[in-house]
Computed example of a mutant assay.
Amino acid sequence: MPFYRIYMKEIKQITEAYQKIDFSQTRAALATVVRVEGSSYRRTGARMLVLESGEWIGGISGGCLEGDALKKARLAMSQNKATLITYDTTEDDPYQIGVGLGCNGIIDVLITPLDPQNPNNAVRLLQNCIDQRTPNLVVTVTNLSKKQANISLGDVFRFDNETHFNQTFPLNEIRDNILIEVQDALKNTKSVSKEYILEDGAKLILFLEVIPPAIQLLVFGSNYDVYPMVRAAKELGWRVICICNPIKMHPTLFELADEVVPKDFIPSIDTFTAAISMCHDYESDYRNLQMLLKTTISYIGLLGPKKRTNKMYVRMNEEGILLTDEQEKRIYSPVGLDIGAATPEEIALSVCAEIRATFSGRDGNRLKLRQRPIYEN
């Protein structure tokens, strides 16, 4: 499974804050990490909404760049002009911003003033990505060596489909090449920067950013340990559907989860969906397993010991249901990473960590034992 870098929670926080801004009283800008070379605390796609007052939402680093980015953002707002800032933490110069972090990387941050009258400003386009259950792709102009009549630094275009992109992207001369790169990025679920040379010799760099949807977690169960599971998943910014007996559930669950639905609910499964059955009832868990195995869901977690799941395997075999290798690989039981979890809260941590590792294509081992870079793209 490819690595999914999902910043949907941050995007939601930024769009919600944007909607509350009184642009008659203040201005705002969006800072976006568009290129990282080497090591960095945040990666491409990390964002920070900056208000003229000095408040910000989100982040572009571990805290070392935000202060300087705020100053640069205020300048960009006053000039109403996008700007690209490069932070080089590989230098030994003590006056270089961010050098104390010791990240040993180069970070390009695009700062774009936000025009509330522009329906295609960066935040408004991101807002359209939030409720989608398929990967979105946003094309951002991050470098332009010569002034152009119909495109500027900081311009953003959302790829909905080829027809829409052809109508909105203004440069006919490179559109076909961009469409090829866009399809590759979506296929690989990997953001990339691409350089193009225009007919007048100008250099144009575009950041083709793939924005996957938030992980969707299906939680089957009506017992008290459902609540910390839902809370943990929501803290991560996931979409959570609790499949239970709604009559038995405390009202707080309806506030926590995105949906609370009855046991006969047939969930919609997509590439970014995981499920955990924690009914504490053998027959219920067995039915859920049977139902989920008939879908394409990539993660099926079963609470309980391995011998309980093995009993289900034997029963399926006796009923003439042959479990394929592919199906067995999708079943995670005992569910969660081996962290010694004992309480419902710790179990929720263990399970959510395993789900994230699975969607990242990682083994969940200690980073100190990893021989390769933490981030490979």
Rank of each mutant, 00 (worst) to 15 (best):
P135K: 09
E181R: 10
L198F: 01
T142F: 11
S193P: 02
N143C: 01
T142V: 15
D155F: 04
T140G: 02
S145T: 15
R158C: 03
P170Y: 08
D184E: 15
I174M: 07
N128W: 08
N172Y: 07
V156T: 08
K146Y: 09
V139W: 00
C129K: 01
I197M: 06
Q183C: 03
S152V: 08
F159K: 01
P135F: 08
N150T: 14
S152M: 10
T134Q: 14
T168P: 03
T142L: 04
R133F: 06
F159D: 08
I130M: 10
P170I: 09
D184P: 00
E195D: 04
V156N: 07
K194W: 08
T163E: 15
V138I: 14
N188C: 03
T134R: 09
K187H: 12
Q148N: 00
V138H: 01
N143T: 09
P135L: 04
D131C: 07
K187Y: 13
N177M: 05
N150Q: 13
K147R: 02
Q167C: 09
V182N: 02
I197G: 00
D184T: 11
V156C: 14
Q167P: 03
Q132L: 13
I180E: 11
K146A: 06
S191W: 12
R133E: 10
K190W: 01
S145R: 02
F157C: 00
Q183S: 15
K190T: 10
I178N: 03
F157Q: 03
T134L: 11
E173S: 12
A149T: 15
T163K: 15
P135N: 09
V139L: 12
L179R: 10
D176Y: 07
D176S: 15
N143G: 07
K190L: 14
Q132M: 12
V139F: 04
N161M: 01
N161Q: 12
Q132T: 09
N136S: 15
C129F: 06
Q183E: 11
Q127S: 07
V192R: 01
F159V: 05
N136L: 01
F169C: 09
D176T: 13
S191N: 06
I130L: 07
K146R: 12
L171R: 02
